[in-house]
Computed example of a mutant assay.
Amino acid sequence: MNLPPIPKDKYREFAVRHFRENHKILCPEVVDILYDRFADGTFYLQKVMNMLFLKTPDNGICGMEMVEAAIDYIINFTADTYAELLYQLPEKQKEVFIAINKEGKARAINSGAFCKRYGLASPSSVKSAVNGLLDKDFITKERDYYEVYDKFFSLWLAKQ
């Protein structure tokens, strides 16, 4: 069952109220930035907001300066898992996975230009690798582009 994303203003209102009810202050722009950054992916937004809530002391303020540290904490917590998953990928899939991650929203991935830009063997090997990555849920296809499914994995990979 697909549920539509929670509207940003409703999510902001809920988060600010939740912090306030627990004697904490949440700067509304934190919610706005995270909502946009994770393209209304509620799971990722909720995970970061939960970490921010835990790291905000009673009567403390959660501001923008806490956001990157919270995201880094989450990514570092699962870094070993991401490293192991990447290690277990066949080499061609790993190369295509990294290329898609670098693109963000990768379009025309079966083109010669995409292969050349990322030093990939051929469009046919990209197609084969993409099928494997889709089967393993490492990437997803949305309309006319591919992207890394796990946003935290994507952020971890970008730092490697």
Rank of each mutant, 00 (worst) to 15 (best):
T56K: 01
E68M: 08
K55N: 09
E65N: 10
T78K: 04
Y44P: 05
V96H: 01
K55V: 05
Y73A: 10
A99V: 13
G63T: 09
A69Y: 11
V48H: 02
E68H: 02
N76E: 10
I100M: 14
E84D: 09
G104T: 06
N101G: 15
N59F: 12
E84M: 03
M66H: 11
M66D: 07
Q46E: 08
I71D: 01
C115M: 07
L120V: 07
M51K: 15
C62D: 04
G104W: 04
D58T: 04
L52T: 05
E65A: 06
K116P: 09
A106E: 09
K105P: 04
I100G: 10
K116Y: 12
I100R: 10
Q46N: 14
C115D: 13
N110T: 12
P90S: 08
E65S: 08
F97D: 07
I109V: 15
L85A: 02
E84V: 01
N76A: 05
A113F: 11
K94V: 10
L52V: 06
Y82M: 04
L120G: 07
M64K: 14
L45K: 00
D72N: 15
T78V: 00
G60A: 01
A99W: 14
L86E: 05
A121R: 14
G60N: 04
L45H: 02
A70W: 10
L89K: 02
S111I: 12
L120N: 11
K55F: 05
L86T: 08
C115Y: 07
A69V: 14
A113H: 12
A69H: 12
I61T: 08
N76K: 11
Y82E: 01
R117D: 13
K47A: 04
L54F: 03
L85W: 03
T78F: 06
C62V: 05
F97G: 03
Y44F: 06
Y82W: 00
Y118H: 15
P57E: 10
R107L: 09
I109F: 09
R117W: 13
T81C: 00
D58W: 02
N110Q: 15
L85E: 11
V67P: 04
D58K: 01
I75Y: 07
K47S: 06
K102M: 15
K102N: 13
M64Q: 08
F53W: 02
K55P: 00
